[in-house]
Design a protein around this nucleic acid. Structure first.
Lengths: 342, 342
DNA sequence: TTGAAAGCGCTAACAA
DNA sequence: TTGTTAGCGCTTTCAA
């Protein structure tokens, strides 16, 4: 079945194709009669606009590209959910690209997006190592760019993030106020601002409350259940003097929690545990896992709204990039709350 | 900055633009020298192919459209993860559309995809009520279509699903073999095959083992933690004679589990609980939640592979649709295993 | 209100 | 091996 074009409709009605185009696009200069006739014929012939042609000509695609490390993560899929929802309501479609934390993939994704002439790119970067020059290609081409969660602070790009420093601080402060004094920190070995900031918050909280920070109690690795287990096991076997764990991610915290319980160490009475990200399981485990919520869906929505606001303004690259910083929400649960005095 | 086109490169090198096009597309009939020169100039001028123009002309976009109810669900985001990964490796980009279980959104998504001239559509439908004629638009236009997880069996469309009947059967059978005799079933009120099949499996397992099915013990509603809590509470308060719950979804099972524990009912000794979907939390709760794994990432990969295989064949709509059915994997955990005899 | 015409940037068939 | 030519289907300006 050959596809119907505006020419087919024009032929059918004995008008020119530009009249048809006007009718279809709600152009003001068109008689109600022809418009109705065109719409009727379009429907009858099963006409469907060719966005490729229209975009090629007009220079707008109404498509934005989204780059995330992976969708197989509740955090990112949840943010993407929020972004898509809002963008969709505003007439945009979404091209999606997963990088798997690989810089090369990230570059490939951006190239594809640029070639597809997306109207904008929203990205959460893969690790801030060298070789990010390709982001400059985006600004060179004047394509609106936004970061969410993981931004490159050196670049003048608008972003929506949460205050990871504050998050690290309040998480640690909470543990301190609950009476824990020797708090270990499990974090990522990835070179990402988010983790450095959480660490900085942890460090400053200890300092502010006059507690010493012990380098031995900082464990870095690939965040995961296993890493949490291994790290806490190592600390225990080295007989380090610690009474709480603050992990930069919930699965890691969960691993620690499991080992502690297996070994008969009482949580929260003997040891406090604090995670990060508010994964669904945290509320269900026993003891329930204290954590920090990152407002994922809200982050997605804010990102989309900021994007829409910024592209409404002609001169995207002429204005100082707006950076929205969301507040993290501390979720204290049983793994860190000592009901009885110790 | 004006965008570079093949014409700019041609002018620079004093050749025609078709020579440039050939060089860029690795056409065999081109001298090594010109090719090198073109590539060098292209890079120097920051050339980037315009896919809109290329697709418009060639009739292929290398884009596929994916339709899911929501990404804010570990199941769908995980499957999409798998699909994107494989499709990306094979040179496809992915347009994403969430329906929020709304038929109208689903139709809108499909229309957008068709207008964008995607090379194929992969969809998980929103509820099999009336008004699905728009799917016929897809076949009319000869656009390859695939279903995953939620298929419309009446349509001759290839699909990748899991055997929900078998899943319902083995889950129930497992409970029976563990000694439970009065098994309640909590399921969705959505009119979806997947839930009807799980229910059918449940019913047949009871029958096969000579256990009566009691209509009072079938609860239908919007699957959620709350629904699980409410349902089990109601059964308890009505003093129904039941000793196990098989929920068609993990959060629902979790709700039931929480209420049981709160009321001091021992799981699994007094009551067995079985979920569905293998959500992350199931492994971490106490007692850990028995469930059925749906092989999400594998489902995504299989879907992508089937799609690639089918479009390699010219005549997509001429061949009988292949339906791949994956086996569910029973994951027995503590919530259903009575270690000691009862 | 409608028509005519140009062209977005590319692919691909045919000719030289 | 390279050039010529004709569109793909639409938007948009100018003219009638």
């Amino acid at each position: 079945m050959k596809k119907t074009t505006i020419h087919d409709i024009a032929r059918e009605l004995d008008v020119t194709f530009s009249t048809v185009a006007r009718a279809l696009n709600d152009h003001p200069a068109i008689s109600a009669a022809t418009k109705a006739a065109v719409l009727e014929t379009a429907k009858r012939l099963n006409y469907q606009q060719n966005k490729l042609a229209s975009s090629l000509r007009s220079g707008r695609t109404n498509v934005i590209g989204i780059i995330v490390p992976s969708l197989d993560t509740s955090f990112f899929s949840s943010v993407v959910h929020g972004i898509e929802k809002v963008m969709n309501e505003n007439g945009y479609s979404m091209l999606l690209y997963q990088t798997g934390e690989s810089l090369k993939q990230e570059q490939k994704g951006i190239e594809t997006f640029l070639q597809s002439r997306v109207d904008g790119i929203i990205s959460s970067v893969s690790g801030e190592v060298e070789g990010r020059e390709f982001y400059e290609q985006i600004s060179k081409r004047q394509v609106p760019l936004l970061f969410f969660d993981r931004a490159i602070n050196e670049l003048p790009v608008p972003s929506v993030t949460i205050n990871d420093y504050q998050a690290g601080f309040v998480a640690t402060e909470h543990l301190i106020k609950e009476g824990y004094k020797h708090i270990a920190h499990f974090t990522s070995d990835q070179n990402l601002t988010i983790f450095k900031e959480r660490f900085r918050g942890y460090r400053d909280a200890l300092q502010q409350y006059g507690l010493p920070m012990n380098e031995d109690m900082i464990c870095k690795g690939r965040l995961s259940l296993e890493f949490g287990k291994d790290s806490v096991t190592r600390l225990l076997e080295q007989e380090k003097n610690f009474d709480a764990v603050f992990a930069a991610e919930d699965y890691t915290a969960m691993g620690a929690l499991q080992v502690l319980l297996e070994r008969g160490i009482k949580v929260p009475q003997q040891m406090g545990v604090m995670g990060f990200a508010n994964e669904a399981f945290g509320a269900f485990v026993t003891p329930s896992l204290s954590t920090v919520d990152q407002q994922t869906i809200r982050m997605g929505e804010e990102t989309a709204h900021l994007f829409l606001k910024l592209i409404a303004n002609k001169d995207f690259y002429g204005t100082t990039p707006e950076r929205i910083v969301l507040d993290p929400i501390l979720i204290p649960r049983h793994s860190s709350q000592t009901v009885e005095p110790r």
